[in-house]
Design a protein around this nucleic acid. Structure first.
Lengths: 220, 220
DNA sequence: TGGCTAAACATAGCATCGCTATGTAATGTG
DNA sequence: CACATTACATAGCGATGCTATGTTTAGCCA
């Protein structure tokens, strides 16, 4: 080695790409480096091209998601925590919808799946606690249930962020999760209360929205 | 008017775009018209640009979806039919994943939402039948439940088609729908049987897959 | 310490993208 | 039958991602 890469440049470019994504500005090779003083070649020395930069941005998205989920306070009610994790997942996605889209529109796996694994594992931990406290049946497959919870959250936030469903459709999250968790053995009434406690507080309908969804008279 | 547009050219271009999408070829302005004999300007006279063509392709996708759902045979068991509609939805999406992605990655509404409405309405009809036959409680909101079913289907097919979840994860559809429909008043055992009857036959795990999903050791 | 080497970085140019300006051919209407 | 308006073709523009080439810089070892 003769000359060493500056890691700050790498994070600078990722940060700038994420920022432009959030601002809904077109993020191109030349627009990224504009103003930073670095040349377009930096993208190639650090990421090997635009695809590599997108992958790095994707990784950053999963890292932020894991960090966001880590801030969810745990309570003695694991079912409530489960719903709260789901709400935090959607809150994170909706506060940065374009980054969320980038996270999932690539066809290849992540370079370092640890962040994504950690996100799912935070759900698994809550499910295990629910089993330990007797809320869920002992035969519940924690990873499977976590995946199913993820599927619901992704479907909801995806349809809301890309347009077809209005933001109010997020309210569907609570009844779906309630049905799912009730099916795992929880008492219906208690489950409903726990889910609504964990789900609602984060983003009440009527929250000011940065990116208004498209007018959708056709969809419920 | 002096010279009239040829509608065949319009459908030809849409068809060709959908075909190239299915073949995973890059679909560009010049590659679409290549070999058809028409010039690049045709895209502008018929669609006003590439955005217009994408919108037309999107519309075609929803039309095909509605047609696919219309072929689902109705049985005396409305819950089974509901699951069968969900399975047909996913089968349609997975047999043409890129078209499915185009259908949902636009930020604006469809020109003619009738096809999309019809797709959702086929779910609503099955739910109404389930209410009429006493499988679901009378106070179930049919449109809300149809939307929730859609959310689950979209979340599942979206995560499977874009990579993160392996194709086997489609099996999660049955337990989620079972939990959802059981929460509407159906008897658990009976609901599970109906859902598995409607869900499974269409695409059993192990079905040869056109577009193998990315290797995902990190995800369940 | 100083020169050699390889990596980091800048510049210029290429192929291709969507799009528009301009010109030509064709058809329905008066 | 002549006109006007629309469909269609060609050429070129700005911008995209990427690569080839040259320049500068920093680390290693004699």
């Amino acid at each position: 080695m003769v000359r060493t890469k500056d890691p700050a440049v790498r994070t600078l470019l990722i940060e700038r790409a994420a920022q432009m994504l959030r601002a809904r500005e077109p993020v191109t090779l030349r627009s990224i480096v504009a103003g930073t003083g670095v040349s377009t070649m930096a993208v190639y020395t650090y990421f090997g091209g635009m695809d590599g930069l997108w992958q790095a941005v994707r990784q950053e998205g999963f890292t932020r998601l894991a960090a966001r989920l880590a801030t969810v306070p745990l309570t003695p009610d694991p079912v409530r925590d489960l719903a709260a994790l789901g709400a935090a997942y959607m809150s994170n996605a909706l506060s940065n919808p374009d980054l969320y889209r980038v996270m999932f529109d690539a066809g290849f796996a992540l370079e370092d799946p640890a962040a994504a694994d950690e996100s799912l594992h935070s759900l698994v931990r809550a499910i295990e606690r629910a089993k330990d406290t007797g809320r869920f049946r002992p035969d519940v497959d924690a990873v499977a249930l976590a995946t199913q919870t993820w599927v619901i959250g992704h479907g909801l936030v995806s349809l809301v962020a890309t347009g077809p469903l209005p933001r109010q459709a997020l309210d569907h999250g609570a009844p779906i999760l309630t049905a799912l968790f009730t099916g795992c053995g929880d008492t219906p009434d208690r489950c409903r209360q726990s889910v609504e406690l964990g789900w609602h507080p984060d983003f009440a309908p009527g929250t000011p929205q940065e990116h208004p969804s498209a007018p959708t008279t056709a969809y419920p």
